[in-house]
């Protein structure tokens, strides 16, 4: 079986679903037998899911409209 370090070397690509079938087989065998890597894998997937589902950083509409208003007023004044 591959080592934890070897698992970790392919981990990023595994999360992104970018590994070949042969590599995937090795990684999944390791996951099924190593608790530490399993927890790592599981909690990293949850992290990504939580970030993705709770898509944040929205700019309140009133703020964006007020900024656009200021910018356009300035541009129209410059042109006049």
């Amino acid at each position: 079986m591959i080592t934890c370090d070897e698992f970790f070397a392919e981990f990023g690509d595994y999360l992104e679903n970018r590994v070949s079938p042969e590599v995937r087989k090795e990684l999944e065998l390791h996951l099924s037998q190593c608790r530490a890597c399993h927890v790592l894998y599981d909690s990293t997937c949850q992290t990504v899911k939580i970030v993705t589902d709770n898509s944040s950083f929205d700019l309140p509409r009133n703020i964006s409209e007020s900024i656009i208003g200021t910018v356009m007023a300035k541009l129209r004044a410059d042109r006049a």
């Binding site: 990023g12 690509d13 992104e16 909690s43 990293t44 949850q46 992290t47 990504v48 939580i50 970030v51």
Partner: peptide
Amino acid sequence: KVRLLRGRLMLRERLAPHFA
């Protein structure tokens, strides 16, 4: 890819105390 993995792992580390 390297930075994404590292960023995700750092987040995981910081969120762990809450979620674990």
